[in-house]
Deep mutational scan, measured.
Amino acid sequence: SQHQEELPPPPLPPGWEEKVDNLGRTYYVNHNNRTTQWHRPSLMDVSSE
């Protein structure tokens, strides 16, 4: 059986914070524009500005 090492997730872009809601779900807060989202932001998402 193949065992895959879990890679650590990439660092969050500046201004982002990973949080967990009261149901144990992980979400991400963008403090730059005060938004939240479910999927993890990547540095590539942000660098397109």
Results as ranks from 00 to 15, higher is better:
Leu12Gly: 02
Thr26Trp: 03
Thr26Met: 09
Pro8Glu: 10
Arg40Asn: 10
Leu7Lys: 14
Ser48Tyr: 06
Ser42Tyr: 03
Gln2Pro: 02
Ser1Thr: 15
Pro41Trp: 00
Trp38Ala: 11
Asp21Ser: 11
Leu23Asn: 12
Asn22Glu: 09
Pro14Glu: 14
Glu49Gly: 05
Gly24Glu: 04
Pro14Phe: 12
Gln4His: 13
Glu18Thr: 09
Glu49Trp: 00
Pro11Asp: 12
Glu49Asn: 13
Val29Tyr: 13
Gln37Asn: 04
Glu17Cys: 09
Gln4Ser: 06
Glu17Ala: 09
Arg25Val: 11
Thr35Ala: 11
Asn22Met: 09
Pro14His: 09
Arg40Asp: 02
Tyr28Asn: 01
Gln37Tyr: 01
Gln37Ser: 15
Glu18Lys: 14
Asn30Ala: 03
Glu18Val: 08
Asn32His: 12
Lys19Phe: 02
Arg40Thr: 03
Thr26Cys: 08
Gln37Arg: 02
Asn32Met: 10
Gln37His: 00
Glu6Asn: 15
Gln37Val: 06
Thr26Lys: 15
Ser47Thr: 11
Trp16Gly: 03
Glu17Arg: 04
Arg40Gln: 08
Arg34Tyr: 07
Ser42Pro: 13
Asn22Leu: 07
Ser42Leu: 09
Asp45Arg: 09
Ser47Phe: 08
Thr36Glu: 08
Pro8Trp: 04
His39Glu: 12
Thr26Ala: 08
Glu6Leu: 05
Asn30Ser: 15
Glu49Ile: 02
Glu17Leu: 05
His3Trp: 00
Pro11Gly: 11
Gln4Asp: 08
Asp21Tyr: 00
Pro8Val: 12
Gly15Phe: 08
Glu49Arg: 00
His31Phe: 10
Ser48Phe: 05
Asp21His: 01
Lys19Asn: 12
Ser47Asn: 15
Pro9Met: 15
Ser1Pro: 01
Pro14Trp: 06
Trp16His: 00
Tyr28Leu: 01
Met44Gly: 11
His31Asn: 12
Thr26Ile: 11
Ser1Gly: 02
Tyr27Cys: 03
Tyr27Ile: 04
Asn32Cys: 07
His39Trp: 06
Asn30Arg: 02
Tyr27Leu: 05
Ser42Trp: 04
Arg25Glu: 14
His39Met: 15
Leu23Cys: 13
Asn32Ile: 10
Pro14Val: 12
Val46Asp: 13
Val46Lys: 09
Thr36Arg: 05
Gly15Trp: 04
Lys19His: 07
Ser47Val: 08
Asn32Glu: 10
Pro13Tyr: 03
Pro11Gln: 14
Pro41Arg: 00
Pro9Ser: 07
Pro11Thr: 09
Glu17Gln: 10
Pro13Ser: 08
Ser47Glu: 11
Arg25Phe: 05
Glu5Tyr: 11
Glu6Gly: 06
Pro10Asn: 06
Trp16Asn: 00
His39Phe: 11
Glu18Ile: 09
Glu18Asn: 06
Leu43Tyr: 11
Asp21Arg: 00
Asn33Met: 15
Pro9Ala: 12
Trp16Lys: 02
Leu43Ile: 07
Gln2Met: 08
Gly15Ser: 08
Val46Ile: 12
Gln2His: 11
Asn30Val: 00
Trp38Pro: 13
Pro8Asn: 14
Ser42Ile: 11
Lys19Ser: 04
Trp16Pro: 00
Arg34Ile: 05
Met44Asp: 14
Gly15Tyr: 11
Val46Pro: 14
Tyr27Ala: 04
Pro9Asp: 07
Arg25Thr: 12
Val29Ile: 04
Arg34Leu: 06
Val29Asp: 03
His39Ile: 06
Pro11Ile: 05
Leu43Cys: 14
Glu6Cys: 07
Tyr27Lys: 05
His3Lys: 06
Met44Ser: 14
Lys19Gln: 05
Gly24Ile: 00
Gln37Lys: 01
Leu7Asn: 12
Tyr27Glu: 02
Glu17Met: 08
Val20Ile: 05
Glu6His: 06
Asn33Gln: 04
Asn30Lys: 01
Gly15Pro: 10
Ser47Arg: 09
Glu18Asp: 03
His39Val: 11
Asn22Gly: 04
Met44Ala: 10
His3Arg: 01
Ser1Met: 15
Asp21Glu: 02
Ser48Pro: 12
Glu18Trp: 03
Thr35Phe: 12
Ser48Gly: 11
Asp21Ile: 00
